[in-house]
Amino acid sequence: MKNCLLCQASIREQIGLDDLFSLRAAKPTIICQACASAFSRLSATPVCQLCGRKLTAAMTDPCYDCQRWEKQAAFSFSNRGLYDYNAAMKTYMSRYKFLGDYRLRWVFMTEMKVAVTRTKRLVVPIPVTEATMAIRGFNQVVGLIDNCRFVNALTPVAATKESNQSAKSRADRLLLDQPFKLVSGMEATVKDAKIVIVDDVYTTGTTIRHAARLLYQAGATSVTGITLAR
């Protein structure tokens, strides 16, 4: 008997007939059915082809925000989100990132690995600042792809963020200057590479597009994104 990592309820591990005959190792259960069902996968719904957000009937594809990006950007970029950024996902993020419960990376690690390796691209996580690293003790993005091969090609320009991202309005964020720079010695790795950038949440897209722009400038041939939540 194990307990759900999110709600502590005890989980009965169910082994079906196909598990017995498949010869594959049974997938370990980390969270209970009730908690799992509170998250909403984006694979089952229509999403924006450029940012991966869930589309409602009133929205166009690509969505309004992406059309604006397309007008100003000089490079092509598309993102895939694994899950809708709903209430359950927001609670998860606040516990994982802000409370700092590093164990919670296990909840989505397997799915992130599948999604990331399937791209067959060079994996580059979004970095966190030294200040965040000092308080939190981990990079939440690296935690999610801990079991994958990845390259720390990016690093923040400033040691501290001047204010918390989520406290800013969309307009404020769009005005931000390039927050990243290439880690020295990474030039050859990035040049002519096909890259997938990994981040935890795609909110306005500013962060991940800044990273994409930098990587294109460094000579990458194609850059896409994968985020846990959109």
Partner: peptide
Amino acid sequence: ALPNGHYYCYVCI
């Protein structure tokens, strides 16, 4: 375990 070599308490977090 945290990746920076430290340990945290996940019980009273």
